[in-house]
Design a protein around this nucleic acid. Structure first.
Length: 364
DNA sequence: GATCCGTGGTC
DNA sequence: TGACCAAGGAT
């Protein structure tokens, strides 16, 4: 019944030739990447999670260090939370690594340590969505499953002249239905990776290198000269700004007070210096003094900020005024999420980049 | 289904 | 410089 869609898109399309051209090109021209050295499902999995919304060049060193520290699925399952967060520090989207460990533990307890090889089962794992499921199944297990990411939607929207808005979550379904027919049954791994590699190297967002494209003859957008008009993608709204105040509280024994962020939401479970949202009209210094007194039992002198830090998230901007104060003893520890640590021990904790900036600028 | 969730790079 | 991007998933 729903075959109407793909029948329409793939009508008069040379499926077999396209598959061969793409796979041959990938096998000849693929980049050497660390996660392509093995078909180990766990390692493929780790790479796919790291690569979510993250550039290849950024991922490479993180991947190598991560595999060095957690070579097997069991190693990751047994690791302490602070170690996995530290391994992810600076990569962003930190729930990815907590979900990954949760899922790996599930594999150990429910699947005898073997990553499931069906879409139904693997999709129940935390952090494994439609794309990651398809990527693991095709790359590690050679199954002819679609793996639709941004590259795939861009490439296929041009080749098959699809003008649905790829910013809408419903659009992914359309590409998946087409790909169930289009994916190579001979080499699903090279086919899926080939689509993504093509998107990364040739069929790029703004200036696609059509003259170098191995499947140019199949491309309907190129034929009509409208390759830069596709894909259609609606704009996202711009970030809102928040005025923040952070305070570096030191004592007389080279220690600072840090706290763990809540277990849900932004930067969950990372460490930070006491950090508050303040309104534009606030007198920040006095507000900060009040909060420290009420919430931390700390009666501190608060002067002018020692510097300011701007940090841009995907959907939010923090303008942080950084204060510094010195207290005696170790007040403020009444909550388990707060602790005094020696300055030399700070690097053992995973901080958001915004607070790494504070560390650098504060000459701690 | 729109929004939340990071970061660094590019033009 | 601002807007957009990069191998998405959870809610």
């Amino acid at each position: 019944m729903n075959n109407q869609v793909e029948q329409e898109q793939l009508k008069n399309f040379k499926v077999t030739t396209f598959q061969q051209d793409l796979v041959n090109w990938f096998n000849e021209n693929q980049r050497e990447l660390p996660w392509r050295e093995s078909k180990n499902p766990y390692r493929i999995w780790v790479s796919e999670v790291m690569l979510q919304q993250t550039r290849v060049e950024t991922v490479i060193p993180y991947y190598q260090a991560f595999i060095r520290e957690f070579p097997t699925l069991e190693d990751l399952a047994e690791a302490e939370e602070d170690r996995i967060l530290k391994a992810w520090e600076g990569l962003g989207y930190y729930s990815r690594v907590r979900n990954l460990q949760s899922a790996v533990r599930e594999v150990v307890s429910q699947y005898n340590g073997e990553v499931p090889d069906t879409r139904e089962k693997i999709s129940t794992l935390k952090g494994v969505g439609p794309y990651t499921a398809g990527a693991i199944l095709s790359i590690a297990y050679g199954k002819p499953e679609p793996a639709v990411d941004g590259n795939v939607m861009r490439v296929l929207s041009r080749i098959l002249l699809i003008d649905n808005d790829i910013a809408k979550s419903s659009t992914r379904i359309i590409f998946e239905k087409i790909l169930y027919e289009l994916v190579s049954k001979v080499d699903p791994s090279s086919f899926n990776q080939g689509l993504m590699e093509l998107g990364a190297l040739i069929c790029t967002p703004t200036s696609p290198g059509c003259l170098l494209c191995p499947v140019r003859e199949h491309c309907r957008a190129y034929e009509k000269g409208i390759q830069t008009e596709l894909p259609v993608k609606s704009k996202k709204k711009k970030q809102t700004s928040k005025l923040m105040a952070a305070v570096v509280i030191r004592n007389d024994r080279d220690e600072v007070l840090i706290e763990r962020r809540p277990s849900t939401g932004l930067l969950a479970r990372l460490w930070q210096f006491p950090n508050f949202e303040t309104s534009i009209t606030d007198n920040q210094s006095s507000v900060l003094k009040g909060k420290l007194l009420n919430d931390y039992d700390i009666d501190a002198e608060i002067q002018e900020p020692i510097h300011k830090v701007e940090h841009i998230f995907s959907h939010l901007i923090w303008n942080i005024s950084v204060y510094e104060t010195i207290v005696s003893g170790r007040p403020g520890e009444r909550q388990a999420s707060r602790k005094w640590v020696e300055i030399s021990e700070l690097e053992k904790h995973a901080f958001p980049v915004s607070h790494q900036k504070i560390i650098k600028q504060s000459i701690i």
